[in-house]
Design a protein around this nucleic acid. Sequence first.
DNA 1: CATGTCCGTTTGACCGGACATACGGTTTCA
DNA 2: TGAAACCGTATGTCCGGTCAAACGGACATG
Lengths: 249, 249
Amino acid sequence: MSLGLGVDRGSPVPLYFQLAEQLRTAIEQGRLAPGMLLGNEIAFAARLGLSRPTVRQALRTLVDQGLLVRRKGVGTRVVPAAAAAGAAPRPALTSLHDELDAAGRHPATRVLHDAVVAAPAEVAEALGVEEGAEVRRLERLRLADGEPLAVLRSHLPLRGPLPPAADLEATGLFRLLRAAGVVPHSARQRIGARGATRSEARLLDETEGAPLLTLRRVVVDAAGRAVEHADHAVRPTRWSLDQRLLAPE
Amino acid sequence: MSLGLGVDRGSPVPLYFQLAEQLRTAIEQGRLAPGMLLGNEIAFAARLGLSRPTVRQALRTLVDQGLLVRRKGVGTRVVPAAAAAGAAPRPALTSLHDELDAAGRHPATRVLHDAVVAAPAEVAEALGVEEGAEVRRLERLRLADGEPLAVLRSHLPLRGPLPPAADLEATGLFRLLRAAGVVPHSARQRIGARGATRSEARLLDETEGAPLLTLRRVVVDAAGRAVEHADHAVRPTRWSLDQRLLAPE
DNA sequence: CATGTCCGTTTGACCGGACATACGGTTTCA
DNA sequence: TGAAACCGTATGTCCGGTCAAACGGACATG
């Protein structure tokens, strides 16, 4: 095979994970061409000194990510386009702040509004609190490289110690929540578009009615408690969603 | 447990799949409350007359879908919010036509343009053909319940028998491609927004500059060959993207 | 009273093997 | 010559078991 495949049993990193990572980089670097590869899981496992379940676990993660395709009676093939598509795992619940950070676009935040208000009907239902119950309303302006990027409107349930407003200008909301022990688990997200309101236009340096990308999401933690109800409006000329989709079987 | 759990060994449906489906419906119907459930995989497996790996395979699919959370030394818990979020598997590469169909919104299509043209630079690169090579350019107007919904612009590589234009008015492009033996495998998608051009506005019954949701995707098949380069513009007042996101570990 | 340690429990990782099923090419038969 | 039957091969499913790692509470210690 001449690929530098081989696992380190001394490492605390699970064997299946080591193997998956090595295969992924091999695919992305083009050292693994399309065609019948990795032929025969059993022989492959024997060559690596691993058991078949372990090898299968590694292959499965790559199949889940669309890098490999398995067919019964044939074998496991590499999807060549995966290399071009780059390392894009499943669409994940990410933080806009961290995303900008990772892209090297220097995020910054200005807190426009931060107060406890009575929950509007829609927010109350999404957060699982009674209508009119007190929630924290947060409105922020997110900038990237100094340019206005998005208006972020959030409603948070009043639970536990809340992050001080000052910190919100320094880092992202998700990171503060996580530091406070609130771990986001999953979210429902609706993506749409609409024209900018007058105030949004002023904040975002756009004209009234200019097209904005909208993200409405409800984030919950592992216990099922609502963490955040967000309603964001983003300048589509400065940011867009990039996703990788897999066809269902 | 008093849940109607039990697998049918006579069925051709895999045991782990039967179990996963039963657990999923139990969760969605609220028959499985949060708290420590399914306690102890080993006992659970014994109770069902299955082996632990089989049970774990069932649990894993549900964990992947965000319905369960496992913690070492604690157990496997049900995520209650999942019930509210509904049965939403990972974001999949779906067809707009089929999506409307499933929602009972009676999709229809008008072919506005269908011709072989020289590939523009961007399209050529995305499709993996040389710039200026011949590709099929397709422009369609998609309607839902008789109302204009989106302008669909596609570029298809000239390969194999192409679906006749007449069929395009009757059904979706994906279904025709699949019938022709071209199976979509994965796609990269970019979601944005912009103002409607004059011609789009006329087609969609909007005003010029009205905000539109844009989808740009490159679809590839399992062999890595590009299947379609699409550039769609959708009326956000009539349709929006609904997704369910999972937090990474 | 606070802190650190031990320990039972539960999932995580890994191994070996067995049989079923689907695919693709070959061989055989009409 | 064409189509049907056959067979090798690969993944899919399922089983049994072992050891490690992490969590949470009880216990002992300073």
